[in-house]
Design a protein around this nucleic acid. Structure first.
Length: 600
DNA sequence: GTAGGGTTAG
């Protein structure tokens, strides 16, 4: 029997014991299995062996057990090998090198094996090995657990590896396990470490914290400064938040540090300015790019589209072709978006047709989303439904929700109910969907159904998202919720809102009540609407900014008809440009008018 | 071989 050949070449200790002293003892101690290659183990043998391993208190004894396990190929049994590894790693006679020998003999180490050996290394004199094994797990496609990460990070801290810690940190966040505290434990943070943290914050919708980190990086005590990648990340956060002033600050930083020539930075600036409703500045940046690529054009087209400048978006699309820049799928998303936001039904359908025929780009779910929105808002609900049913991509919850939004606009009860049914079937229904259905019922005055659905929602404990509007003042984003009383200047804000309401009534503003959910008397409804979060944010804007300054508000949900009218009349009476970005689009108001097709 | 990164429906 050539059992020596089955041994790992490095396991000299074991060779020694096997060849010199223990072999006879071992075979007497344990009945060996007949074949070394076939693992044939009963539950009882396993149990017996494990209790032996556990009770083993001397190294010599342990060595004997180990030798036997190798000899009988029982090392292939994952439970036995784990106990063996665990005992040698955390016993009074522990020795990391020996742990490693055993680990290397295990044919297919699993998560528990890795956790054990990584833990052993993390408290040993060679903690860097823990990190290498952690990386090894990825290469071998062994999934990691929070425990693994915790040991691996500890080891990185012990051998002062920033790179290691950052890599594990990124992986933890990618795997959805929160461990931002790790960052604080890194002694030497470089720009990349900061950038990773910012990126993770943005991915986890903590955009405001991302902006704070930019400021922290920029502070005097901090040695490593933001670089071009930091700027890209932070611009993205500004765009999401609608934080224009902060975005401008980042823009100045970019210019000061000479990042302004980088095309990716410029493209991000275009996106940031357009998503903050500052189309002029977006266009200014766009014009400054010498060699505009497809991303620059797409970003600009998208910017025109979301700001309600559909004609310019389409012109830009034509211009880019004259300049021989080939459009891609995202360019068409922008073009179709322009059509949807401006109600260009025929053109939208034509572009959908052209993109595959002329440009060989197959429409994706985003393109169909625009088309469904376009048809739905135009009141062509059946046609929109047909598009969903006929498209080659599987409809997702978002696309059904788009159609549901259109059902609300047009008070389409039957289709609305069917769409909610589809969402429930997809198991993707959200509180907001039921709210839209409530809106549909109340807009047609079906209070019976409203009551029924409200009861259902109460029974099921469905929590609706509270409406929240934000407005930025001197680079700080401020929140307002419905009937907000938490603001330090709440008295002034409510006073201002009352004053605004008086002025607007004189100008002919009447509270629009169909969108309100409750079956209240008209007067009460008017009252219930008066403290919507966007109105509070606007009142705050009027209060704290000098006359003539544009008021920019971002809202997490859809703006209601009444607030829309309120802002429209206000833009004329107070001579203020009002820009409200809600969940689905921008609403620009100037001199008593709305730049898009009014509410829709 | 060297982390983090540009435009994307509602």
């Amino acid at each position: 029997m050539s059992y020596f050949l089955t041994l790992h070449p490095s396991s000299l200790n074991l060779r020694f014991y096997l060849s010199v002293s223990c072999f006879t003892t071992l075979t007497n101690l344990f009945p060996t299995t007949s074949s070394q290659n076939q693992l044939n183990i009963t539950k009882q043998t396993q149990k017996h062996l494990i209790s032996l391993i556990k009770s083993c208190s001397k190294k010599t004894h342990f060595l004997q057990i180990h030798a036997h396990i190798i000899l009988t190929s029982l090392i292939q049994d994952p439970t036995i090998s784990l106990h063996l590894l665990s005992r040698i790693s955390f016993s009074p006679f522990r020795e990391t090198r020996y742990s490693r020998q055993i680990f290397d003999q295990i044919p297919n180490p699993n998560l528990s094996h890795f956790n054990t050996i990584i833990r052993a290394y993390s408290i040993s004199n060679s903690p860097e090995q823990a990190f290498f094994l952690f990386k090894n797990m990825r290469q071998k496609c062994v999934p990691t657990s929070p425990l693994t990460c915790s040991f691996a990070i500890k080891s990185c801290i012990r051998f002062c590896s920033l790179i290691g810690g950052v890599q594990i940190h990124a992986r933890i966040l990618r795997d959805g396990v929160q461990a931002c505290r790790v960052f604080d434990e890194i002694s030497q943070r470089d720009t990349v470490a900061w950038n990773v943290l910012i990126s993770c914050y943005i991915r986890n919708q903590r955009t405001r914290d991302a902006l704070c980190l930019f400021d922290n990086m920029n502070s005097e005590e901090n040695e490593c400064k933001p670089d071009d990648v930091t700027c890209l990340l932070v611009l993205h956060a500004c765009a999401q938040l609608g934080a224009l002033e902060f975005g401008e600050k980042v823009h100045s930083f970019i210019e000061e540090h000479g990042y302004g020539d980088a095309k990716n930075v410029c493209n991000s600036l275009i996106a940031m300015y357009s998503r903050c409703g500052s189309l002029d500045k977006a266009y200014w940046v766009f014009k400054g790019i010498r060699e505009k690529n497809v991303v620059s054009w797409s970003a600009m087209i998208h910017g025109f589209a979301i700001n309600g400048h559909g004609r310019e978006a389409i012109e830009a699309f034509e211009e880019m072709q004259r300049r021989s820049v080939l459009p891609d799928d995202q360019t068409f998303t922008g073009v179709l978006l322009a059509c949807s936001h401006c109600g260009f039904v025929d053109e939208g359908m034509m572009f959908l047709d052209r993109m595959s025929k002329e440009f060989n780009i197959l429409p994706n779910i985003h393109h169909y989303g625009c088309i469904v929105d376009l048809l739905g808002r135009a009141g062509l609900l059946d046609q929109a439904y047909q598009v969903i049913m006929s498209m080659e991509v599987k409809p997702d919850s978002t696309i059904w929700r788009t159609l549901l939004g259109a059902c609300r606009i047009h008070g389409h009860v039957n289709l609305g109910e069917r769409v909610v049914g589809q969402l429930i079937e997809l198991k993707a229904q959200e509180a907001g969907d039921y709210v839209l259905l409530l809106n549909i019922y109340s807009s047609v005055g079906n209070w019976e159904k409203v009551k029924e659905l409200r009861c259902f929602m109460k029974e099921k404990g469905i929590q609706t998202t509270p409406g929240c509007s934000t407005i930025e003042l001197k680079g700080v984003v401020q929140d307002f919720v419905v009937d907000d009383v938490s603001h330090p200047r709440k008295d002034e804000i409510y006073e201002m809102l009352d004053e605004i309401n008086k002025q607007l009534k004189i100008a002919g503003y009447v509270a629009e009540i169909t969108s309100e959910l409750h079956n209240l008397a008209a007067e009460e409804k008017g009252y219930a609407l008066s403290y919507h979060s966007e109105k509070l944010a606007i009142a705050f804007g009027v209060l704290v900014t000098p006359p003539g300054t544009a008021i920019r508000v971002a809202k997490n949900l859809r703006i209601c008809v009444d607030c829309h009218n309120f802002a429209k009349v206000l833009s004329g009476v107070y001579n203020r440009e009002v820009i409200i970005r809600d969940r689905t689009r921008f609403h620009h108001f100037r001199e008593g008018h709305c730049s898009c097709n009014d509410y829709w």
